[in-house]
Nucleic acid binder design. Structure first.
Length: 573
DNA sequence: GCCGTTTTCGGCCCGACTGTTTTCAGTCG
């Protein structure tokens, strides 16, 4: 079983216990443990099978260690099964409705015996819910709108899809004369792969004017709540946005507070307590005396830390590293010099080799690799050996036509379900750059997935593993991979690992990219562009790399072409 | 349920907003 699957069991357990009214700190323990499992690369299944002690892991004590062993050995957890029989799945789903929490969900379940979303809708429409103590007409309306929201969309959006809206709103508010500073905060500022809602922070002395401006913005569909300092709206895209307006001397404290993550902030505030300080969204203070708050740097300094980049604020060791003065100097978009994964009209791209080369050059890239699909990808008109060799001859021609950019003859070669490569070695040997990828059979058992990846890594002509897990965020889980084994082999054989920058892939994720860096494996960040506009995705790959704590020196295509060539396996390029 | 050189028991971050409450519980971030 994969770590994320086990983490989901703990999350479900926490949800069920929460509806039953369990101690909130017990719930937090389960959720912390789930986070802990998601942020480690070693497989829990492997650790259990090797008989290793699990209580060393953060957030895992004696009880949870035993539960993990049970899950690995039997594939299930008796406590969870029992809870599932007590609380129907439909009741847990009700938690996804904004405004409905565990207490009210439990009340709906116990007093009206509602066990499905359909029954909830019927009860709301029939007026039964508004008769419950603590419920009323507004709450009923909120439930109906929430059900609608769940029906039409998932609850999370790609960061990249939300970027234009956020930038537009920040720009509009920033243009108001009464606004001093304005910025996006929250998970958007931390550059998470997906965002559940958006946060914007502004400083002004005229709160009402700022809120009015947001309410009147063309992207805003509805104002959901409005108070003295906070306004919540829903955008036409369906996502909700929180606006906070604070005084200018609170800007840093508020930015720190609303950027999160929650887990990071809990530790920061605990550090404050230890120093006799308190931190809230307005300031750092001691006995009601203002200590800091104008800038984030001041807030961190007050708790004895340097500024921590938002991308790292997940309480995954960044606070300890900051304390030791070991924070990385994170990669910047401007560091990127090459792009090593892209398609042309030869397969499923929309631009020619020359158009891609010109577009890349116009963006300041110094080298690219043209990497169309291999034949297994019939849907994309994948290339067999003959067509590929002809394609490379075309690339040669473009090399002589376009100056100022190096163009590598590459291939995105499928690793077939039977653990062989889609093209023979003598063809791969002629390439400058070979990306090996899994496209099909992602649901195969772990042993077979490992065998396939090992085949590719041990092939002397493979340069890099592309989008290693094969996941599509929010739509398809990745293959079940023993990353510890794969990364070790990749290092031993000098094979690089890709962060695919496409907004729906971002694969490697930040946890495994960090693990690859720790092992000394060069990372490649590539756009997988299928058009000249596809190069715009590079920024999202860089965000992912920053969240992994990567520096320019960790990224092969953040080097000059000469430096990059030195990192290739001997005899290539 | 986890955690600990000040603690193995008693802590576990902090505040805004809404609705339905006659003073606050629930939810959210």
């Amino acid at each position: 079983m994969q770590n994320v699957e086990i983490a989901q069991l703990f999350e479900e357990l926490a949800d069920l216990l929460e509806i039953q009214g369990a101690n909130v700190f017990r719930l937090r323990a389960y959720r912390n443990a789930a986070r802990s499992l998601e942020s480690m690369t070693a497989s829990i299944t492997d650790l259990v099978e090797q008989g290793q002690s699990l209580t060393e892991l953060p957030g895992i004590g004696k009880d949870l260690a035993e539960k993990l062993v049970t899950i690995v050995q039997t594939g299930e957890l008796p406590q969870l099964n029992e809870l599932r029989s007590e609380v129907p799945a439909g009741v847990v789903q009700m938690l996804r409705i904004p405004g409905l929490g565990p207490k009210r969900v439990a009340q709906l379940f116990k007093e009206l015996n509602l066990t499905t979303l359909e029954a909830l809708k019927a009860a709301a429409e029939g007026g039964e819910i508004s008769k419950l103590k603590g419920f009323g007409a507004k709450t009923t309306q909120m439930i109906l709108e929430g059900l609608e929201l769940i029906a039409q969309a998932g609850n999370r959006y790609y960061l990249a899809d939300m970027q234009p809206s956020v930038e537009d709103i920040v720009k509009t508010l920033g243009a108001l004369p009464c606004v001093e500073q304005v910025s996006a905060a929250g998970s958007f500022r931390r550059r998470k792969e997906t965002v559940g809602d958006l946060d914007v922070l502004a400083t002004s002395t005229d709160h009402a004017a700022v809120m009015d401006a947001l309410a009147g913005h063309a992207l805003v569909e509805k104002v959901l709540a409005r108070g003295e300092t906070k306004q919540r709206v829903r955008l036409r895209s369906g996502i909700e946005l929180d606006l906070r307006v604070v005084p200018n001397e609170s800007y840093g404290a508020a930015m720190q507070y609303f950027t999160g993550s929650k887990e990071h902030n809990i530790v920061i505030r605990r550090r404050a307590q230890e120093r006799g300080l308190k931190v809230n969204e307005y300031r750092v203070f001691r006995d009601e005396q203002y200590v800091a708050g104008r800038t984030e740097e001041d807030v961190y300094a007050a708790v004895g830390l340097p500024f921590i980049p938002p991308e790292l604020r997940e309480n995954r060791g960044e606070i300890e590293r900051a304390e030791r003065g070991e924070l990385p100097k994170l990669l910047e978009l401007s560091d990127m010099q090459g792009d090593l994964h892209m398609h042309t009209t030869a397969t499923d791209g929309t631009a020619s080799i020359r158009e891609m080369a010109e577009a890349a050059k116009a963006r300041g890239l110094k080298y690219i690799a043209i990497t169309d699909h291999s034949k297994r990808v019939t849907m994309a008109n994948g290339l067999d050996a003959d067509r590929l060799r002809a394609h490379w001859r075309e690339i040669d021609k473009v090399r002589s036509q376009v100056s100022g950019i190096e163009i590598l003859c590459g291939i995105e070669c499928d690793i077939l379900e039977d653990a062989t490569m889609d093209l023979p070695d003598d063809v791969l040997a002629e390439a400058d750059w070979v990306i090996a990828v899994l496209h099909y059979g992602l649901k195969q058992p772990r042993e077979q997935i490992n065998k396939r990846l090992m085949t590719a890594i041990q092939n002397p002509y493979v340069s890099v593993i592309g989008h290693p897990s094969g996941r599509i965020i929010g739509k398809r889980p990745g293959a079940d991979i023993s990353f510890d084994d794969i990364l070790k082999a990749a290092f031993d054989h000098g094979v690089m690992m890709e962060i695919n920058a496409h907004r729906s892939r971002l694969d490697l994720d930040e946890v495994h990219a960090a693990a690859a860096k720790d092992r000394g494996i060069p990372i490649v960040i590539s756009t997988d562009a299928h058009s000249v506009h596809g190069f715009d995705e590079m920024q999202f790959g860089v965000f992912q790399a920053r969240r992994a704590g990567l520096e320019a020196q960790d990224v092969a295509n953040a080097q000059s072409f000469e430096q990059f060539k030195k990192r290739l396996r001997r005899g290539r390029a």
